[in-house]
C-alpha cells in the first residue's frame, strides 16, 4: 500500500531531504511563477507518483490515470501563477487532481453507476478469501463505486494520508464533514465488497 506520504518522497521514492523543505519548494514555485519550465519539472518529479496514484484510484486503469495525470500537471502549470501559498502546494495539486478525475469520470461514465449515499445491507452468504491481487482489484473497483465525496475522502485520507484538515481543504469541506464521509465510506466499502462476494457483511 502506498501509504507513505509521497509529498516527502523524491521521484524514485526515496525520502526527500532538504529539497522538499517548504522554503525550497516555495523558491521552486516562485521560479515556476516566473515562467521557468525547468523549475516546474522538479515539481513534476516530486509529485507525479502522488497524482498518478490518486488518478488510478479514481479511474481504475493505467491509461486513463496516465492521461489525467498529465492533464493535472498541465493545469497546474497554467494556474501556478494563481497559487498564493495559503495551503500546501500538495493540497492545491490534489485539488486539481480530484477535479480532473471527477471531470474525466463525468465525461466518461454515467453517474447512475454510483452507489447511493447509504448502501442497503444485501443480506447474503459468508465471506471468502481471494487472491491478493484479485482482492486489490476488487476493492479498488468497490472504491470507484462509492459516492463522490466518500470516495474522495477515503482516497485522500487512507491512501495519501492527508490529515482531516488537508482533506477538507482539498474538497472545500469541513473537518466534521470529512470525518463523517470517511466513516460512511469505510462502512459502505465493507458493504460493497461483501455484496460483490455474495456474502452478508
Amino acid at each position: 500500500m502506498d501509504t507513505t506520504p509521497s509529498s516527502v518522497l523524491t521521484a524514485d521514492g526515496a525520502p526527500a531531504e532538504a529539497s522538499a523543505a517548504p522554503d525550497a519548494e516555495r523558491q521552486v514555485i516562485e521560479a515556476c511563477q516566473r515562467g521557468e519550465r525547468e523549475a516546474f519539472d522538479q515539481l513534476v518529479v516530486r509529485y507525479q507518483r502522488d497524482i498518478y496514484r490518486l488518478c488510478y484510484r479514481y479511474l481504475n486503469n493505467h491509461e486513463d490515470a496516465n492521461d489525467v495525470t498529465q492533464e493535472v500537471f498541465l493545469k497546474a502549470w497554467r494556474g501556478i501563477g494563481r497559487f498564493r501559498g495559503k495551503s500546501a502546494f500538495s493540497t492545491w495539486l490534489y485539488r486539481i487532481g480530484v477535479n480532473a478525475c471527477l471531470n474525466f469520470r463525468a465525461a466518461r461514465r454515467p453517474v447512475a453507476h454510483e452507489l447511493p449515499e447509504m448502501l442497503a445491507d444485501p443480506g447474503m452468504g459468508a465471506a471468502q478469501r481471494v487472491e491478493k491481487a484479485q482482492r486489490a482489484a476488487q476493492v479498488r473497483e468497490a472504491v470507484s463505486r462509492l459516492p463522490e465525496k466518500q470516495r474522495a475522502t477515503l482516497i485522500l485520507k487512507i491512501y495519501h494520508e492527508l490529515t482531516h484538515r488537508e482533506v477538507a481543504q482539498v474538497l472545500g469541506s469541513t473537518v466534521g464533514t470529512v470525518k463523517a464521509n470517511l466513516f460512511h465510506a469505510l462502512g459502505n466499502l465493507r458493504k460493497l465488497v461483501a455484496a460483490d462476494e455474495g456474502v452478508k457483511p
Binding site: 488510478y56 484510484r57 479498488r140 459502505n188
Partner: peptide
C-alpha cells in the same frame, strides 16, 4: 473492516 479492506487495495 472497511479500513482493513481499503488497506489491501494497492495500486499496481
Amino acid at each position: 473492516a472497511g479500513r482493513e479492506l481499503a488497506s489491501k487495495a494497492e495500486v499496481p
